[in-house]
């Protein structure tokens, strides 16, 4: 709304504005000073330590970093591809399981029991064991049309993360107030329609932050498929470390992972903000 009257701040308000501005400037200066002091202390402490020259040489060697970057980036492409496929797969599986767990009625009993058993089981088993069983055990069956190790490894990730995401989705579904269900059912919507149009849209929006949080965790765990052979960024860094007798490639891989996580985290914040704004949180 545009303000069309001729209001000007009174003397009191002007004085308050000036005071608040002075306080703001003061706190910015204080924050800068305290950060500078702490940063200097840390830098001096680390660089003056007796082992610093050797650590610097073996962890922060620019030449090694440049040399190992292409190989690590090659590995990172695999990480990103796996991340996208596994994240989508795990979310679809998690959502399906969460919805199955809310079904009622005797016919749905086996489905419900299976879904519950799945979330209990696969949240308990260590990811690495599922990965080994899928990539080393399953091919042993020698079935025809067996997918590659990479696909099997990806499936292991989807199965394990699906169990976690199912619980996230279930929390979201249960957080929708019963009065919303009553309103939907009273309009004549069936259980399915109520889920589809009223419960799930609200549930998914509410759990978007924890959902993307798990996606960031998945981003680091997709690298574990390298245990079964495929070369991801961390494995590539490990190979580079062995070639150069220098640990710098690990730092390079670490920095790349952080850079990869930043947009994901940014998207989470943006999604959450947008949902809040659309529902009128701004006045």
């Amino acid at each position: 709304m545009t303000i069309t009257d001729t209001w000007r701040p009174s003397a009191v308000e002007q004085e308050r504005i000036a005071y608040r501005r002075r306080r703001a400037i003061r706190s910015v200066l204080l924050a800068a000073a305290s950060t500078a002091v702490l940063g200097t202390l840390l830098a001096v402490g680390v660089t003056n330590s007796p082992g610093w020259p050797r650590v610097k040489e073996s962890f922060f060697d620019l030449a090694v970093a440049q040399d190992s970057l292409p190989a690590i980036l090659d590995g990172l492409v695999l990480n990103i591809e796996l991340l996208i496929c596994c994240a989508l797969g795990a979310m679809a599986l998690g959502l399906l399981i969460a919805v199955l767990r809310t079904l009622r009625g005797p016919v749905a009993f086996p489905v419900r029991a299976l879904a519950t058993g799945y979330t209990y089981g696969f949240r308990g088993v260590p990811l690495i064991i599922v990965l080994y069983v899928m990539t080393l055990g399953v091919p042993g069956l020698r079935l025809s049309g067996m997918p590659s190790t990479l696909v099997l490894g990806g499936l292991a990730l989807v199965i394990v993360y699906g169990a976690y995401l199912a619980e996230v989705f279930r929390a979201g579904i249960e957080s929708v107030h019963p009065s919303q269900l009553a309103a939907a059912r009273s309009l004549g919507l069936t259980y399915r329609q109520t889920m589809r149009h009223v419960v799930l849209p609200q549930a998914v929006r509410r759990v978007a932050p924890p959902l993307l949080n798990d996606t960031v965790a998945l981003q680091k765990d997709v690298g574990l498929v390298s245990l079964a052979g495929p070369i991801d960024a961390v494995r590539a860094a490990q190979i580079q470390v062995a070639e150069h007798f220098n640990f710098t490639p690990y730092i390079v891989a670490g920095v790349l992972f952080v850079l990869l996580a930043l947009p994901l985290i940014g998207v989470t914040d943006w999604v959450t903000l947008r949902a809040a704004r659309r529902q009128g949180a701004r006045s």
Partner: peptide
């Protein structure tokens, strides 16, 4: 049955999304 009956609640129960 519910399709033939309208109900309005004390707390409105509109769908916020």
């Amino acid at each position: 049955v519910r399709r033939q009956i309208g109900i309005v609640f004390q707390a409105y129960n509109l769908f916020p999304h």
